[in-house]
Design a protein around this nucleic acid. Structure first.
Lengths: 183, 183
DNA sequence: GACTTAAAACTAATGCTATTAGTTTTTGGT
DNA sequence: ACCAAAAACTAATAGCATTAGTTTTAAGTC
């Protein structure tokens, strides 16, 4: 039997690596156990169940996304960092979308940090309270929607995806500047 | 045994109803068979497998989405129809997102019709070829992203979701009008 | 250094999923 | 009334997560 020396952290880290290579939806206890050289039920010595393991991976992925956004300042920088992360780490990006459970304080905090970084992209614009909420929701929709369509391979036309992303951001910025609701 | 009188169409229709009530991901042969008063393997007399059944549901859902968008003319009308459909029929909306397989001509045609309707929302704007591609991609991202975040319950702030949707569209329109790249 | 004990790994089993093979039954057409 | 095709069935396989119960390993204590 030769004990494999697993710990909750090692199992979680292996799960993260698996998600990075095969995707979040594809994470299964079978492949994870094989990767760790152990039988499936042995994982239950270190993990409650698949759902909590997914939650742990999601929390970590949200932190990684937060760190990827950290250096960015302007609207364009933050948006580019967001798209770049999703394209470089689609598995982690998809993992980060899972809503934190209410009892997972650290996960909730990380999700809030990501949200605040996106909100900070709008700091330069003088917006009313309502217009700012609309802008936040609009930016989130834009980023998430563009990423999803990109990952799904839905953009079939010739033009480079990056160019459209930039054009879209320019359009977004123009709309915000034109609005100028605080007078 | 008392033959149940199933046909491929009846099975597909029952699958559609199931997707409408429980969601696209939740469609399973077990629940479908129970709904039809039949054992699971009996379904294989009318359906190739779960994947092609999902494809059939997706094709039908894409048609339904197309019909829901048909009466809309302007950018705002089309966007509202899109959001309204997704909120009224989240199961069908999710089903419509599945990419058509290359051999399913009717499905591909329906997906193309939906795409053209979204493109037609930009007909009123005089845009260069590239700017139009960017606008199409941006609008698709906006619509899909907003719908996803809405269905996921990601908009937690007080302001009504519809108001933000309208604000977002206004912003989008302003950006397009401001750009005016054909001069 | 032997012993006790908790933890880590195991096997076996349950109950879900989709799917296939093979069998019985029903029904439409001759 | 009969024959053949189609529709339903049972039984079985394989993959999934999970639990119960058992063995083994290793760490800590006397």
């Amino acid at each position: 039997m030769a004990r494999a020396g697993l710990t909750p952290d090692r199992v979680r880290d292996a799960a993260i690596e698996l998600v990075r290579s095969v995707g979040f939806e594809e994470l299964s206890l079978g492949t994870l156990a094989r990767e760790l050289g152990v039988r499936v039920p042995s994982l239950y010595n270190h993990v409650d169940n698949l759902d909590t393991l997914r939650a742990a991976v999601s929390a970590s992925a949200t932190n990684t996304l937060d760190e990827a956004l950290a250096p960015a300042q302007t609207l364009e920088e933050i948006a580019h960092a967001y798209l770049a992360f999703a394209r470089a780490e689609p598995g982690l990006y998809r993992a980060s979308l899972r809503a934190p459970s209410v009892d997972n304080i650290a996960h909730e905090a990380a999700a809030l940090r990501v949200l605040e970084r996106i909100e900070s992209a709008l700091a330069e614009f003088p917006l009313s309270v309502d217009a700012r909420i609309d802008a936040i929701r609009g930016l989130r929709a834009l980023l998430h929607g563009f990423v999803e369509l990109t990952l799904a391979g839905a953009f079939e036309m010739e033009r480079p995806v990056e160019a459209s992303f930039d054009g879209m951001l320019q359009n977004f910025r123009l709309g915000l500047e034109r609005a100028k609701p605080i007078t």
